[in-house]
Amino acid sequence: MNQLPNTSRRQFLATTSAALAAASVAPYALAEEAPKKKQLPIIDCHQHLWDLSKFKLPWIKEGTLLGRNYVMDDYNKAIEGTGISHAVYMEVDVDPSQQKMEVDHLSEICESKKTPTIAAVVSGRPAADDFTTYLDYFKDKSVIRGVRQVLHGGGTPGGYCLSKEFVRGIHALGERGLSFDLCMRPSDLGDGAKLATECKGTRFIVDHCGNADPKWFATAGEGKTSADGAKIEQWRSDLGKLARLPNVVCKISGIIASVPKEWSSDDLAPVINQCLEEFGPERVIVGSDWPVCLNGASLADWIKSLREIVASRPVAEQERLFSKNAIALYQLKL
């Protein structure tokens, strides 16, 4: 099965929870107290890659910013000077007929040890009748650490993730030591909390700060909208429900793609700080969401802004956010 040897579902969750709480990760030696001017290394937990000559991505529109190939050479250039040392690939919603191709392609990349990408979260449809058969396809590929199905697109209705078929599939992930990424509309985060409560044996990762829109918090002005109190309060409430569940982790990612044309770190700080406070230093990780982030800013500008926002936090907390939590969560060996 695709899990650590002789590790049960309960042991897997207990092991990762303990590791996250203690933040004591043997394979990755970081200084007890890094010098203030030293750039702490980052593990990018949300890296996209696609080659449109090999894969069909139905959501990509020709002629748009994202309507071209984004491959490893492009990523390597994008992370120069950012401090990103390793990456976890995130599925790109390939045509379902190509899901096994995605598994094989990413397994080859990760196992080569020639790129920053060392683990992968692949596409999957938990409610499908053959979902467990699909999971068995990569049961011996230890670099595959989780599955995602985007729940805010393709006409997916609210409540979809609470069907008995979907819940069955999520239980199957936990039994195999695999995680599930919650990428959903902010208004559906309550459904995510219900799912995580129902499936306590599965680890969940909330993508993109729960898809909060930084413009909700912006003050009125050129290129900005007024604060949206109702949406903010619902997001905060449902984010809090997720944060109270010990099997849920929050990924600080994605929100840069929605910034106003003129933006600063102040536009991102309310969302980021809320997530950090709700989940605490032990249950947060970082993702670039490259190249989708380019809709708002470069990968380098996103990382620079994130570093600015958390700069006043203790170095130990920054280390957990930037790398240690990811190592424990995904059981990475660097």
Rank of each mutant, 00 (worst) to 15 (best):
D266E: 15
W216T: 10
E33Y: 05
S53G: 01
L239C: 14
C45I: 00
S53H: 04
M72R: 03
A21H: 08
V88L: 10
T16L: 13
K333W: 01
A243M: 00
L173Y: 07
K251I: 00
V248K: 04
R148F: 06
K139Y: 00
L245G: 10
S265E: 15
S17R: 15
Q98H: 02
K77I: 09
Q318C: 03
K304W: 07
E262F: 08
M184A: 15
G287F: 03
S305G: 06
P96M: 05
Y75M: 05
A22C: 05
L57Q: 05
V271C: 15
Q331F: 03
D136N: 12
H86M: 05
A19L: 14
G159W: 14
D191T: 04
A18W: 10
T219R: 12
Q318D: 03
A172Q: 08
A328P: 04
M90H: 03
Q318V: 01
E175F: 02
L189N: 07
C110N: 10
E175Y: 00
Q11A: 10
T82H: 09
K54M: 06
Q39W: 01
A23Q: 06
Q98W: 03
P116Y: 12
L52H: 14
K37G: 15
A193M: 13
A172M: 05
L178T: 07
N295E: 04
G154D: 03
L178N: 09
G67E: 05
A300M: 02
D129L: 12
A119Q: 02
G153P: 00
G169C: 09
K215F: 02
R244G: 15
L4G: 02
L195R: 13
L40M: 14
R307Q: 04
S97K: 11
V71N: 10
D44M: 09
P5V: 07
T133M: 11
D188Y: 09
L40V: 13
A243W: 00
N211L: 13
Y330C: 10
N6H: 05
K139G: 04
R148E: 05
P35V: 04
F12L: 07
V150K: 00
I255P: 01
T117I: 13
E91P: 11
G229R: 07
A230E: 15
G240N: 14
V206N: 05
V122Y: 03
E102N: 06
R125N: 07
A22M: 12
Y89W: 13
Q234H: 08
G296N: 06
D74F: 11
Q149V: 02
I60H: 10
